[in-house]
Design a protein around this nucleic acid. Sequence first.
DNA 1: GCACGTTTCAAACAACTGTTTACTTGCAGG
DNA 2: CCTGCAAGTAAACAGTTGTTTGAAACGTGC
Lengths: 217, 217
Amino acid sequence: MATVAAEDTRAHIIEAAGPIFAEKGFHATTIREICQAAGANLASVNYYFRDKERLYHETVLRASEMRRAEVPLPQWSQETPPAERLKGFIHTIIERMVLMRKAPWQVKLMNREILQPTEACRDLIREYFRPHFEMLLAILDEMLPAGTPDHTRTQLGFSVVSQCLFYRMCEESVAMMVGEEELAAHYQGEQLAAHIARFSLAAFGHGNLADSPNTAS
Amino acid sequence: MATVAAEDTRAHIIEAAGPIFAEKGFHATTIREICQAAGANLASVNYYFRDKERLYHETVLRASEMRRAEVPLPQWSQETPPAERLKGFIHTIIERMVLMRKAPWQVKLMNREILQPTEACRDLIREYFRPHFEMLLAILDEMLPAGTPDHTRTQLGFSVVSQCLFYRMCEESVAMMVGEEELAAHYQGEQLAAHIARFSLAAFGHGNLADSPNTAS
DNA sequence: GCACGTTTCAAACAACTGTTTACTTGCAGG
DNA sequence: CCTGCAAGTAAACAGTTGTTTGAAACGTGC
């Protein structure tokens, strides 16, 4: 049994399917398109994945694995102040979503799942989003008063991540709104991360919006 | 010429197409499905709109018209403080997007356009989003120091609207994250608007997060 | 050499897609 | 009554879709 070659084309198909699913969505993507990009036969998808849906599901999970492996969260020392940790967290999220230009399809695909969940989304939340969100909440805990209720904590977390998500999900609309030149000048990853961190920290009472308005990292 | 009946079925088709396009997207929606829902003949779409794309375009524009007409922005008096105006703005946006349960398809359809713009998006930005965003920026201007650069102003505006957009766009994922009970208890429109207003005003240095943590309006 | 299970392939399948056609209906003005 | 034209309809069109088929090619163990 030539399992090596078999797993090879299997992986080839997922890697070819990723960018296409990410760009056009599930319905607008055709199996023929994927197989052609993968250099595989039309019947390969049904042979290895049984049907189109299962291929999609596996592709989504593969995307989250790749993102986590490529951009790990920073390791903080014990005495790192929570404000610094929040900055690092936001920076990592923005970097995962916006900065790394060479691997954007994983992000686009995951965004599709967040916006229009399929069966794959439960796996995605359990293994990717939930752990990261808990990490964020742990940081916020150190900046919030002791008796802060759970749902307020959660919504404050959402207020932070929603700003990060916005620039990825609404990327094209933002470009239409501000124009290409403005986009290139003031909407690069580091600048956005710095802005979001400054806004959020000001909301938490750490510093104010006038602090270091034009520097990042 | 029976123009009355003609415009009637034309409108019927758009109204039937709206919820379906909103729910399933352009590609996954079939003309047959729309015509059946509209009680019209299969050929009607091509007769009145020439093709599927033009029907979609017109449906998106119709959606924005309906939202603007149904939930107008409040009229502020001259002496209304900017903090109050910001609260009112956020409240209206959240109400347009989340609260009105009877008419959610227009919002879903417009969100689709923001996330994955087609030709219709330029019209949408010009006639809907841009005017509202300018209104928000005018409010922020009164709370910001005089020399605030343009791109910072814009990004602060995005920080506000991104929080509002989040709860609509990621509605299903948020539900998966927090559970249905929590959602019903703490994620209703007024509560979300109050939270976003409190967070944003704290960031602008107006009040802090501990203010009125459990009351709305 | 042969037989075996796995992988690959071209071809066909049935179902569905958006669009067009040819025809009928309904109603106006002459 | 007839003509002209907009509106509605059923049927067919040509193309694409996901999926299945049956045979060929491949590598491996005997």
